[in-house]
Design a protein around this nucleic acid. Structure first.
Lengths: 191, 191
DNA sequence: CCTTTTATCGGACGATCGTACGGTATCATG
DNA sequence: CATGATACCGTACGATCGTCCGATAAAAGG
């Protein structure tokens, strides 16, 4: 069951990146997995649990594919730049068929109270924490000016990556990633 | 009928900013307008027409409240800065209960083919055109360096405004607007 | 070999959705 | 006053949704 559940969860992640977590339906997910609606339902107990599992799965995948490969870089600006590149490449190669999962979930639930919104908010806050710490490390390493505002830079990087994702999804113009990459470099320009 | 239709459309705009255009339902909209489902339906003919009307209404409102008041400013950086301020203020004062309508619609339909996606893409493209022209005007006025990339700057401004909107919706921390405003100033820093 | 557990299935439920269509009340016009 | 248009209502339809529950078959454990 654990295996089946994680397979269905993975399918849910991909679908949700396209149609949103609210757009998920247990029936269509069951069709895709060649199972019955009642079987998929019993794997999660409720639609909300399925949505939460999808969110968790998406974060796990993102962490593995973006953070994992750059963790070995030299702490400071090199690691931060590698992270940004990996981040954009993740979206550029279409790892998520509908674009950035977390952005989709954020925009979907930012004004809708409930467990989903809370989970998304916690995830987002954690991610901003990672970015800010990464910027702080670059400052300590002397790679960025001492008066760099960590929060501002983290906000900018996240805004640019998200915009690259939905901008590409909408226009299908790969050039937006070049625009985003240049913009990130500018935001991280020392001086 | 035209009056009734525009009232319902306005209500649809606000609801859609919270629950998305796909989350709109004719029945709940009818309750809100103290009408019957069939009446609201007959005003639009289909749900899709309702969604398209909501998109059009949102754009109209945004144009009136953001672009209108700054059109009189001196063309160049002053007008562009005024536009950015008005833009952020629009979201900061909660003109849209669920945050930026166009961002919500973009993220919702960017990976879903159909008339809605096409309409959103056209709207977004038009908006980017406005921003790029505005940047170009500032360059011509000598307010920005001649080698400024209009597309990059327009992309950055839009990314920052959108991120400010959903960041605020999610965290309810007004500070994000200050962060966004500083970030916009940085993106427009001459030199 | 029998029993218990476990995963999946089949079918049903009430609710809500978009859509359709004929009826009704209001009101301007001749 | 009669007539026609107009705006809204009442009701119904088929589809799909999340959820629940009992059956079933396979696997596991004694």
């Amino acid at each position: 069951m654990a295996e089946t559940r994680s397979e269905v969860t993975q399918a849910a992640v991909e679908r949700a990146s396209v149609e949103g977590l609210e757009g998920l339906t247990i029936g269509r997910l069951a069709d895709e997995a060649r199972m019955r609606k009642s079987s998929v339902f019993s794997l999660f107990g409720s639609k909300q649990e399925l949505q939460l599992a999808a969110l968790e799965g998406a974060v796990e995948q993102f962490t593995d594919e973006v953070w994992g490969p750059v963790a070995g870089e030299r702490p400071g600006l090199p690691r931060l730049l590698a992270l940004c590149d990996r981040w954009l490449a993740y979206h550029e190669r279409g790892a998520m068929p509908g674009g950035c999962f977390l952005t989709t979930a954020t925009v979907e639930y930012d004004a809708r109270p409930g467990p989903l919104r809370d989970a998304v908010a916690r995830t987002m806050q954690r991610w901003f924490g990672v970015l800010e710490r990464e910027v702080a490390t670059a400052i300590e390493a002397g790679d960025l000016p001492a008066d760099t505002n960590e929060r501002d830079v983290a906000f900018q990087l996240n805004a640019l990556a998200a915009a690259a994702s939905y901008g590409f999804q909408l226009s299908r113009d790969p050039e937006v990633f070049a625009v985003a990459r240049r913009s990130m470099r500018t935001a991280l320009a020392p001086g």
